[in-house]
Design a protein around this nucleic acid. Sequence first.
RNA 1: GAGGUUGUAGCUCAGUUGGUUAGAGCGUCAGAUUGUGGUUCUGAAGGUCGUGGGUUCGAAACCCAUCAUCCUCCCCA
Length: 489
Amino acid sequence: MAKVKVGLPQGTRDFSAETVRKRNYIFITIRTVFELYGYQPLETPAMENLDTLMGKYGEEGDKLIFKILNNGLDRTEKHLKAKEDFEKVLEGKNVDGITERALRYDLTIPFARYVAMNHGQLTYPFKRYQIQPVWRADRPQKGRYREFYQCDADVVGSTSLLNEVELVSIYATAFEKLGVGVDIKINNRKILGALAELCGGADKMVDITVAIDKLDKIGIDKVKVELLERGLTEEQVSIIEQYLAIDGSNDQKRAKLAALIGHIEIGKKGIEELTYIYEFFNPESSIVNSETLDPTYVSLTIPDSRFTIDDSRFTIHAPLVFDFTLARGLNYYTGTILEVKARNVQMGSIGGGGRYDDLTGLFGVPNLPGVGVSFGVDRIYDVMEELKLFPEDVQVGTQVLFFNLGEAESRAAFGLMQQLRNKGIRSEIYPEAAKFDKQFKYADKKNIPYIIILGAQELEDGTCAVKDLKKGQQETVSQARLVNYPFKF
RNA sequence: GAGGUUGUAGCUCAGUUGGUUAGAGCGUCAGAUUGUGGUUCUGAAGGUCGUGGGUUCGAAACCCAUCAUCCUCCCCA
């Protein structure tokens, strides 16, 4: 038989049982937190019209959008048009005749498109969460895939900074539940705007932010060189140097920042917004306590001890870190910007978000402000794997295996198995009457804690043997009582 | 888009300055063992050495091309 070459598209992966279970653990944790904060689920198609996506992510972003070739280009009557259109594609243009759809690049723009399409029917403030894969034609490397999941929560129709407070709290809660140590970096585009104003005008803002965003990677000297190359004067660069030299505790940073840009109107506003959010998370001013959480709701959704109220850690706190060099590439942000970085591990950001004043304006519905955050599940997975943070009980699959010891025996076993399944016990029967050795090894491999033996002797006696594989102990139980056997999983 | 790494059995990897028939561990299968697993022992199957060309008496090894992979930059989750 000829060996067929098989493979996956670059940057995509299969997920085996073990991986899927771990990922589900992350999904369910994040989803439960979203629901806990009153966000409603939404799903949108994998593909959007190309012009919905183009131009929303900057020039670089546009290049990374996966485009879908139109069907039917081979039809004879379309050849001439298709060839003309393809010439334009070769020039780097996007042409409807060749490609009019594309895979979604993130969840925020499809959400904005959805809100714009349905704005008459929605109740505002509209809070939605969305957990779906996105695709980017990036070159894969560590922590970077071409297909990956995002978990987004956004609220539109409200300018209140209370939304920011909630989203920061969502980050803090979810990462605490996952056991991932993080810093939630926070900044405000208005602060960056003030710096730009101080350095000769708002038109310099992009140049400045792109350069200072690289501070921790290339160092202050190279940033200065880059700024000069981008046409800033020595004097302006000197101001930026002072800005970048801001350090210390959050309070110290804020004081130094105020001294530098506090006299500028927009800068003052930015600092006020930052301060408002920050003070909610001051350890002295707890505003959320255990009484505000309803454990019954959560336990109805998933039984999960991590969400029971057992301590005072739900008093609000968050590892907020002021980072005035934080810029974030997406150009639609206008206010608060957030980025989550995992501690103790080398990995790009595992979450990001911010406030945008007018995202739906791009789709014809103006004056609808919003703010949102995103979790990068695949990177969170990599971080948790590296730091060994997944609980062991995530991997329990089948709980009971019935041995197959013959035709009549397996029929009896099957009936008992259905009883256990009706009780919610995950059970399976070995499909063939194989040797004991083989069936035991199967149970071992699948990490199944109990096996049940029902052979000729048991069939006659109306019993079965229940064996605990971890302890190596076995006891005989009447078939009628098996359904009430005290399994310990 | 730029730069680098690695491709040998199902998996992880050895393989001498280029030299007979390419190895190990793990896994798989069979047996020791026809109703009691994990251990042990014995045996077996399994390889176009990523692909295509070149150099050579001779290539898994050297050269070129190509594909795949992982990583770095850019940007991002």
